[in-house]
Design a protein around this nucleic acid. Structure first.
Length: 305
DNA sequence: CGAATTTGACCGGCGC
DNA sequence: GCGCCGGTCAAATTCG
């Protein structure tokens, strides 16, 4: 996977500091001066000079803005191309590897979406291959989206709680055949209006990793983060570690930073950072000060549109 | 006392 | 048809 930084210079120089530039007043200005008005004339020339400098600065920023917009468009284009290419490769791989497995197994992590983002935002971003793996729900529909993500926790912790911003009600626990650690079954606490379910089980290969499998899309907004976990006093907090997919059943994708994986990482990062930052009063204060500073700066600049 | 969790029983799909 | 297995239900239990 190509590093973004190798083909896009992300060091933005927006030149937002409107430090005054020293520009010599045009000589012709003096020819229009009236005698005996030196102070007033001086002020007028200074204002016009300032205005010219600001217009020039504005034009420069417009050009810079356009350049960055174009760069972003190219970036998105290349990202989409890679994403589709990855989807095609996965599709071909799944066809060639199609086994005689009797039914879709939700623990087949060959498409290891490590992010719950796709069900969190309710948007479908799945590939055709992923949808082909989608198990039928109890109504026989295949609209249920399945996605996985992994978190690193203390191996001695048996609570099987994964903090993801939603409230869950545990309705069952089973020991499965292929894994000595039990699998916990959760329903969204908004059920039955919200059909989302999740299964949480420790990885066979790495007991420090919890694997959460989500089915369905939430049809409601994410509850407040402070109440994200039922019974916080008895549950341990799973720390999001952005563990790379290592392939539970022999597929080694440890270094496979596919677009889908990157997308998942982005979503997790953004959501985690946003929620933690917005809850931090220091951040709120700092943000307010920064915005205030920008407003004050802009108030000193003439509006030139 | 209400809400959440636990856990054994039950159900349905699938392979033999 | 039988047994295995994963998933779900619901009564009992636990917790705040």
């Amino acid at each position: 996977m190509m590093e973004y930084s190798t083909w896009v210079n992300t060091s933005l120089d927006l030149n937002l500091d409107p430090s005054p530039q020293i520009i010599e007043a045009p000589k012709s200005e003096k020819t229009r001066d009236f005698e005996g008005l030196e102070v007033i004339k001086g002020t007028t020339v200074k204002e016009e000079t300032m205005e010219l400098a600001l217009v020039e600065e504005l034009n420069r920023m417009r050009v810079e803005n356009k350049r960055l917009t174009d760069m972003l468009a190219v970036l998105c284009e290349k990202y989409n191309a890679l994403f589709h290419h990855f989807g095609d490769l996965k599709c071909k791989e799944s066809i060639s590897n199609s086994s005689k497995k009797r039914r879709i197994d939700s623990e087949d992590y060959s498409i290891n979406r490590i992010s719950p983002s796709n069900y969190m935002n309710g948007e479908s971003s799945s590939s055709d291959e992923e949808s082909s793996r989608r198990p039928m729900n109890h109504h026989g529909n295949i609209n249920t989206k399945v996605s996985n993500f992994r978190v690193r926790t203390d191996p001695s912790d048996t609570s099987l709680v994964v903090k993801d911003g939603y409230q869950w009600r545990k309705y069952g626990q089973k020991v499965t055949r292929d894994n000595p650690s039990p699998r916990a079954y959760f329903k969204c606490s908004y059920a039955p209006s919200c059909p989302v379910k999740k299964k949480v089980q420790r990885s066979v290969e790495d007991p420090s990793i919890l694997v959460a499998t989500y089915e369905g899309n939430h049809n409601h907004i994410q509850p407040a983060a402070s109440s994200a976990t039922v019974r916080p006093s008895t549950s341990s907090v799973a720390t999001l570690d952005l563990v790379q997919s290592s392939g539970i059943k022999g597929n080694d994708h440890a270094n496979d930073k596919s677009p889908a994986v990157l997308e998942g990482i982005d979503h997790i990062l953004v959501q985690k950072m946003a929620s933690s930052l917005t809850r931090d009063p220091n951040f709120t204060t700092a943000l307010a000060v920064a915005i205030q500073g920008r407003f004050l700066n802009q108030a000193r600049m003439p509006i030139n549109e």
